[in-house]
Structures are given as structure tokens and as C-alpha cells.
């Protein structure tokens, strides 16, 4: 069972449908007691950073998520859900992120902000680059230590994916990125099955 953290503002139905297309059973999570039974977690995001950070505190989900991550439960953060894995964001300077990844999220310096549409995800190393759908005005800088892929527009290059242990974060929307996104979601679903079996 994959738990989708459903904090008011998120586009949780798109994520639910994408996970269902990959064959996963899902449930929405709104309080800490619902985190424990999940084999994996998704933190989606169509929201303001500050709004979700406040919701994490109001619902008590912040410590529950951090504990689940420490325990080794796979977690996928998407868009603002990805940004929340960092320490903080220029979008809401007083709000705290989960601090799983080192560094903060900054405003983009792309020719147009928000950076909206399809752009290339360029993995570090020799992996193939792929087109993915973005809709973001903020992102972590390309220099953050856990970055595994970057994306460039105009003079700005930012981290479009980061990974640390069992936590994967994507700045783009895999649920809206065609076959590439579907493959990423399928591989996340498979990795959780292996964790569960092991």
C-alpha cells in the first residue's frame, strides 16, 4: 500500500491515477496514525511551500514522515513535495522544510517565471536525458549535494531530481510526463515491492 500525503492543496487525484496505472494500491494520508501501515509514501505538490509546511505541523505529519524516512520507507516527493524535502524555500522564508536534503529552494531565474512546460532532465553521469513536464517558479540550485539530475532554461540551471537513501525527489511532474514519467513511477512502485518482500 502506497500512502499519498493529502494536504488540502495537492493535486492528489492525478498522483492516485498515475500510481493506479502502474498497478499500485493507494490510500490518502491526512494524519500521523495512517503513515505506519504504508510500504511507501508519496508527497505530491501543487501548492504554496508555506501552506504545506504549516499543514505538516498542524496535522502532526512532520515527525511521522521523518520517522518513516529514518525507518527506511521509500518516499517520492514531487514538485513542491520535492522542495519540502529541503531545509527551506524563498517562497516562504519563515517556513521549515523536512530537511532530508541539504540546501534550500530558491526563486528561478529562467527567461519566464514560472518555468512552465516540457524541458530536458539531464541526469549526472551517462544516463539518457528525457523530456518531462514542469510547472515551477522555485527550485533547488543545481549545486545541492544530493542532486542527481539538472535542468536548464536560459542562464538558469537547477536541480530537477535529488536522491538520498530511500528518498527520491523530482521537480517535474512524472504523473504528467508521458512515457518517461510512467516509467519512473513504475520503477518507484517496483522498488517498494522489493522493500516489502525483503
Amino acid at each position: 500500500m502506497i500512502g499519498i500525503v493529502a494536504l488540502g492543496a495537492a493535486n492528489r487525484r492525478s498522483i492516485e491515477a498515475a500510481l493506479a496505472r502502474a498497478g499500485a494500491a493507494t490510500r490518502f494520508i491526512e494524519k500521523p496514525s495512517e503513515v505506519g501501515p504504508c510500504d511507501a509514501l508519496v508527497l505530491p505538490g501543487v501548492a504554496n511551500f508555506g501552506y504545506v509546511a504549516e499543514e505538516l505541523d498542524r496535522t502532526g505529519l512532520r515527525p511521522a514522515l521523518i520517522e518513516a524516512i529514518r525507518f527506511g520507507i521509500p518516499l517520492l516527493g514531487i514538485c513542491v513535495g520535492f522542495q519540502l524535502l529541503f531545509e527551506g524555500s524563498d517562497e516562504a522564508p519563515r517556513a521549515r522544510g523536512l530537511g532530508i536534503f541539504a540546501g534550500t529552494v530558491r526563486r528561478l531565474r529562467t527567461p519566464r517565471v514560472p518555468h512552465m512546460g516540457w524541458n530536458l532532465v539531464e541526469p549526472r553521469g551517462d544516463l539518457a536525458r528525457s523530456w518531462a513536464y514542469f510547472a515551477n517558479a522555485f527550485a533547488p540550485d543545481a549545486s545541492v549535494p544530493d542532486a542527481i539530475a539538472t535542468t536548464q532554461d536560459g542562464d538558469d540551471t537547477f536541480a530537477s531530481a535529488a536522491m538520498r537513501g530511500n528518498v527520491l525527489g523530482l521537480q517535474f511532474h512524472p504523473e504528467r510526463s508521458g512515457a518517461y514519467g510512467a516509467a519512473l513511477i513504475a520503477s518507484f512502485v517496483q522498488s517498494t515491492a522489493i522493500t516489502y518482500a525483503g
Binding site: V46, N48, P114, A135
Partner: peptide
């Protein structure tokens, strides 16, 4: 709407 959902949507 932008304050709650982010201007990108």
C-alpha cells in the same frame, strides 16, 4: 488562489 496553491497553477 496563488497564496494557497502557488502561482504556477
Amino acid at each position: 488562489a496563488a497564496a494557497r496553491f502557488g502561482s504556477q497553477c
